[in-house]
Design a binder for these strands. Sequence first.
DNA 1: GTTGACCTTAGAGCATACTCTACCCTTTAG
DNA 2: CTAAAGGGTAGAGTATGCTCTAAGGTCAAC
Lengths: 127, 127
Amino acid sequence: MQIAELEQRTGVNRHTLRYYEKAGLLQEVERRGNNYRDYPEKAVERVDMVRQLKALGFSLREIREVLDALRSDSIDCEQGAVLMAEKKAAVDDKIRELKQVSALLGREQQRLEESAAALREEGRCKG
Amino acid sequence: MQIAELEQRTGVNRHTLRYYEKAGLLQEVERRGNNYRDYPEKAVERVDMVRQLKALGFSLREIREVLDALRSDSIDCEQGAVLMAEKKAAVDDKIRELKQVSALLGREQQRLEESAAALREEGRCKG
DNA sequence: GTTGACCTTAGAGCATACTCTACCCTTTAG
DNA sequence: CTAAAGGGTAGAGTATGCTCTAAGGTCAAC
């Protein structure tokens, strides 16, 4: 598929797609005779993965490492397994931290709701 | 406390601390007669919260919104409760996504470990 | 064969979040 | 009093991750 289709299907700007390619995030990009890029179907999935990991706070560098290991034909197995384990540990840490944040936000939300209810006819919130 | 102590206790560069203050992330910073900043104890906690949220992929703007609502003496209760609910929903979404990523990484790790074991005396990994 | 919608590259510009430099003031110790 | 250590501001510089512009090639329709 051409870049316009990938842009439309992923919602990622074409300039950004070329940027990702330069950054090594998209490696299976063929060229036609006219020098136009020709993306495989899998590119959609791959770009979505990049978007997803990005939203979770990973840098492009980290995402590239993960994608490289997932491709796993250019990397040593054990090395790949170690990298996966590391990334998984990092992700699991993030999950733990986010759970704490979620709990904190939940408590605060409740507190604010109670104050709001109590002061519904008195005026402003006083925490 | 002075900026050097806060820098040392949080591990955050003093330039960055001043930058955070300008960005509205640290609002309870007093000044002494000599114009030196005088941080309260709570600042340590607050900076840690910023660090934590940042690591989880929140922008300073988002962090500021959360911290503002947590301070909750300058914001309407109901408004604060709504913001908290929104941020909590965003965090919970992230948790769900991270769990999927963690599972995927776990599967890949296992796959790579199995390949590594199988090919231990054959050579390179072939996925 | 020309118009218009595609595509290409190189490089400029922008937002965010630092990080550092320059230059000057304050405090503390000798 | 002076030197060293620490503080202040303003603003420059850097890294990341886009996002856009300029200049030009390609292709399908008329």
